[in-house]
Computed example of a mutant assay.
Amino acid sequence: MLTGKVVRFDEVRGYGFIAPDDGSDDVFVHANMLDGDKWVLAPGVPVEYDAVETDRGPKAVLVRVIGVAAGAERHGTAGAAPTRGGVAVAGGRSRDSAQTTGGAEDEEGLCDVLSERSFCTETTEALVTSVPDLTGAQIVAVRARMLDLARRHGWVEG
């Protein structure tokens, strides 16, 4: 396993870069490669990872947070109740607070690239269970937009 620190992370797009401790070129990292809570990836967070070479350069896989960002403990954010949009989140950690306890991590697995059919099925199920008042036409419109987004980011194959 290699080690480094997150140098940039775009929480909206879900990706960033790790600066390896050995001084080599920055390594691309996607939030789906994180073993645990995706909310903790932020600049300065130390991580451990494996890397593979791609046509675009090195990419981190099996990423695991191994500490807290420098200064997080001094500023009293370590162990503080995390928030998202100013609302406390029970039992979780937040990207906004850029903190981790270094202890037990969520039991969340890695994300698989889905077929377009599976993505549409899961998206429909999520929309129907989350917002049961949506009409069929609204579900189709939202699902089409989400599928376009997934295609652009390589989240689906086919």
Rank of each mutant, 00 (worst) to 15 (best):
M1P: 07
T3L: 03
G4W: 00
K5Q: 08
F9D: 00
G14C: 06
G14I: 09
G14H: 08
Y15H: 12
Y15K: 04
G16N: 01
G16E: 00
G16T: 04
F17R: 01
F17P: 03
I18S: 01
P20Q: 05
D21W: 06
D21R: 06
G23E: 04
S24M: 03
V27G: 00
H30L: 01
A31S: 10
N32F: 08
D35H: 04
G36C: 06
D37Y: 03
K38P: 02
W39N: 08
V40N: 00
L41V: 11
A42Q: 05
E48L: 01
Y49Q: 02
D50C: 00
V52C: 01
E53Q: 09
E53W: 03
E53R: 01
T54Q: 03
T54P: 02
D55N: 11
R56M: 10
R56D: 11
G57H: 08
P58T: 13
P58M: 14
L62K: 07
L62W: 08
V63P: 01
R64S: 14
G67L: 06
G67T: 10
V68Q: 07
A69W: 01
G71C: 14
G71N: 12
A72R: 08
E73V: 14
R74L: 15
R74P: 12
H75I: 13
G76L: 05
T77K: 02
A78G: 09
A80M: 11
A80N: 08
T83F: 09
T83H: 10
G91D: 10
G92F: 04
R95G: 11
D96R: 10
T100D: 11
G102K: 06
G102I: 12
A104G: 14
E105K: 06
E107V: 07
E108N: 11
G109K: 07
C111N: 01
D112M: 10
S115R: 10
R117D: 15
S118P: 00
S118D: 09
C120I: 08
T121G: 10
T121H: 14
E122V: 06
T124W: 03
E125S: 14
E125L: 07
A126R: 13
L127Q: 03
L127Y: 03
T129F: 00
S130T: 11
S130E: 05
V131A: 13
P132S: 04
D133H: 12
L134W: 05
A137D: 13
Q138C: 10
I139L: 06
I139D: 00
V140D: 11
R143P: 02
A144E: 15
A144W: 05
A144L: 15
M146H: 11
M146L: 15
A150E: 13
R152N: 09
R152M: 07
W155L: 15
W155R: 11
W155M: 14
E157R: 13
E157G: 13
G158K: 07
